[in-house]
Amino acid sequence: MKLHIALGAAMIVAAAAPAYADQGDLLVRGRAILVAPTEKSGTVQPSFPGAHVAVDNSIAPELDFTYMLTNRIGAELILGTTKHHVSGRDGLDSLGRIAGTWVLPPTLTLQYHFAPLAKVRPYAGVGFNYTFFYNDKASDALNNAIGKTAVRLKDSAGYAVQAGLDFDLTPRIFANIDVKYIDIDTTARLTTGNAVNRVRVSLDPIVVGVGIGTRF
């Protein structure tokens, strides 16, 4: 009888145990993310000195991995890619969308977990980002307006800061909310025949993610 009571108590304790990570553990999360650029655009030089551009938001899935160096310090790598459209402003408004691009911004952050043994575990991090732009294309509207145009966006390196929260759903599964600010600066080059126009853009997106994670 005492053995049954002891086993039952152990099972209750195990079921109530938080999904916290210890040193050497790997946390894997799947998130849905909103990437919202807070862009600042230069002018389109030299042909459109009064014109600017704007970049739209994008929603996409994301996968991230956090390796716990200690029970408080973790290193997180995020992997995801989003598609964005570039629109004309201030003299290029009538064209609407002028280009599109895919963005791949692998980001590595070093995190501090404030309450590693709690069921609700906030963390903050700072790190490095390198952004690749690929499959850059001019829109039909731009091609029709100024001629066949090749678009190329320069890759970017910058910093990233984040804050987030894990909270337990089961002993191994937890929900996650995460917010990042990523420093991304690029120069778009538009080549139309022998003419080349350039515009500098600071994208600097805020990335909001919500998802589910597990511990290995």
Results as ranks from 00 to 15, higher is better:
Gly209Glu: 05
Ile173Ala: 08
Gly80Ser: 15
Lys137Trp: 11
Gly100Ala: 13
Tyr134Pro: 00
Asp168Pro: 04
Pro105Cys: 06
Ala160Cys: 02
Gly96Glu: 10
Phe133Gly: 05
Thr101Trp: 04
Thr149Asn: 07
Leu26Cys: 10
Ile146Gln: 08
Ile182Trp: 11
Gly91Asn: 05
Ala124Arg: 01
Phe128Tyr: 09
Lys83Gly: 11
Thr101Asn: 05
Asn135Met: 03
Asp93Glu: 13
Val86Trp: 12
Asn144Met: 09
Ser58Pro: 13
Ala51Phe: 15
Val120Tyr: 08
Leu77Asn: 08
Gly147Ser: 06
Leu117Trp: 09
Asp136Val: 02
Arg97Leu: 08
Pro49Ser: 12
Ala16Gln: 10
Pro46Arg: 11
Pro105Lys: 07
Glu62Tyr: 01
Asn129Cys: 08
Asn197Leu: 04
Pro106Ala: 12
Phe174Leu: 10
Leu63Glu: 05
Val196Thr: 12
Gly88Leu: 08
Ala60Arg: 06
Gly24Ile: 01
Pro205Arg: 05
His52Thr: 15
Asp140Phe: 14
Ala175Gln: 09
His113Phe: 03
His84Cys: 02
Leu110Lys: 02
Val161Phe: 09
Arg200Cys: 07
Gly30Gln: 03
Arg89Ile: 13
Trp102Ala: 09
Arg189Trp: 01
Asp183Cys: 07
Asp140Ala: 14
Ala163Asn: 03
Ser41Phe: 11
Asp25Arg: 08
Leu153Ala: 15
Ile59Glu: 01
Gly42His: 10
Pro49Trp: 06
Tyr67Leu: 00
Ala32Ser: 10
Ile184Asp: 09
Phe167Pro: 03
Tyr123Asn: 02
Thr109Cys: 01
Lys180Asn: 07
Asp140His: 11
Asn143Glu: 08
Leu110Asp: 06
Ala15Asp: 09
Ile33Tyr: 00
Ala99Asn: 07
Gly164Cys: 00
Val120Met: 14
Gly147Lys: 01
Met68Asn: 02
Ala75His: 00
Asp136Leu: 05
Gly8Asn: 13
Thr131Met: 04
Pro18Asn: 14
Phe132Leu: 11
Ala188Ile: 14
Met1Phe: 15
Gly50Ala: 13
Lys148Gln: 12
Ala21Trp: 09
His4Phe: 13
Asn194Gln: 05
Val53Cys: 07
Leu79Phe: 12
Ala15Pro: 02
Gln111Glu: 15
Asp155Met: 03
Ile98Tyr: 10
Gly147Gln: 07
Val13Cys: 07
Phe65Gln: 00
Thr131Gly: 02
Asp90Val: 10
Val53Glu: 05
Leu153Lys: 12
Pro106Gln: 12
Thr70Ser: 06
Leu34Thr: 02
Tyr67Thr: 00
Gly50Ile: 13
Phe167Leu: 04
Ile78Tyr: 05
Gly127Gln: 11
His85Tyr: 15
Asn57Cys: 00
Asp22Glu: 14
